[in-house]
Design a protein around this nucleic acid. Structure first.
Lengths: 133, 133
DNA sequence: AATATAGTTCAACATAAATTGAATTATATT
DNA sequence: AATATAATTCAATTTATGTTGAACTATATT
C-alpha cells in the first residue's frame, strides 16, 4: 500500500515552470510578449500599438526580463533607445518544460486510493509512520 | 509607412490562451493539476498529498473546471465521492495554442519602427488620421 | 546652455485573487 | 434516527499584483 508521491520531474522544474506561467498570465504582458514575438522592440512602439503608458510598459517588461524571457539592449548610436526582444534560449526552455508538463501521455489511468473503489480508505494510513523521530 | 498591427491568430485565441495560463499560474493549482495528470483523483487524496484544506482544494478545482481543464464525476456507488480528471480535449487545445503562440519561428527579425534605425520616429505619425469623422 | 526625448523608478492606490473558518448539503453507516 | 463522511458554499480576511501620476536619469538636439 504505497503512499502517493508527486513525480513530475522535480519540484524545482515545476517551480521554474510556475515562474514562466505567472509572467505570461497577465493580459497586458501577454500582448507585449506577443508583440515582441512579432519583432516589435522598443517601449514607445509598444505604447503606440497597445495604447499603454510607458511606465506601465516598463513595469511589465521588467517582469518579463526578470524571468529571463526578454532581453534588453540599448541602441549603439543613441542610447536613449532600448530594444527589447524575446530570449530564444528561454523560449525554448519554456517550450520543453510545458511540452513535458502538459504531455497527454503523462495522464495515468490510476485507480483512486480513496473512496469505495480503493483498497484502503483515505483516513486509514496515508500519514507517515509515527516512529520516525 | 504602415502602422503596426498585432497579428497573432486573433485576439479571441489569445484571450482563450490567457484564461488557461491564469488557471495554471498558481502554485497550488499547478500542483493539483499535476496530481491529476498523475492519476490522483479525489479531493481527499489531493489533500493528503499536498496538505491542503478540502475547501481550498475545492476552490482551486472549481477554477480548473471553470476553464474546462478538469472534469468531475461522482462515484456510481457512493456519490459522496467525486473523481476529478484532466479533460484530454482541453489539454490538447492548450498544447496546440501554446505551441503556436510560443513557436520560435514566429519571432521576426523586424527592424524597430521607432528609434534612429527607423525610417520615421515614434512621434511622427503613428496616430490615426485626424480626418476620419 | 537650454530644451526635448526615451525610458525608468518610486510611492500611493486600486483591484483581484488566494486563504481561512464556519456553516451547509448530500449521502452513507451504525 | 443519529452520527460520520466527502465535499461544497459563503462571508471575511489577507496577500499579491496591476495601475497611476509624479519625479528622476541619461542622452540627444537646437
Amino acid at each position: 500500500m504505497l503512499n502517493y508521491i508527486e513525480t513530475f520531474p522535480d519540484s524545482v522544474e515545476m517551480e521554474e515552470l510556475l515562474v514562466w506561467l505567472k509572467a505570461l498570465a497577465d493580459p497586458k504582458r501577454l500582448r507585449i510578449f506577443n508583440l515582441l514575438m512579432e519583432g516589435v522592440q522598443c517601449n514607445c512602439e509598444i505604447g503606440d500599438v497597445l495604447d499603454m503608458a510607458p511606465n506601465l510598459i516598463s513595469h511589465h517588461l521588467n517582469k518579463l526580463r526578470a524571468v529571463g524571457l526578454v532581453d534588453a539592449e540599448r541602441d549603439a548610436g543613441d542610447s536613449r533607445w532600448i530594444y527589447y526582444s524575446i530570449n530564444r534560449t528561454a523560449l525554448e526552455k519554456v517550450n520543453v518544460a510545458l511540452g513535458a508538463f502538459l504531455n497527454p501521455q503523462r495522464i495515468q489511468p490510476r485507480q483512486p486510493a480513496c473512496g469505495p473503489r480503493a483498497e484502503s480508505a483515505c483516513t486509514t494510513d496515508f500519514s507517515l509512520n509515527k516512529d520516525d523521530e
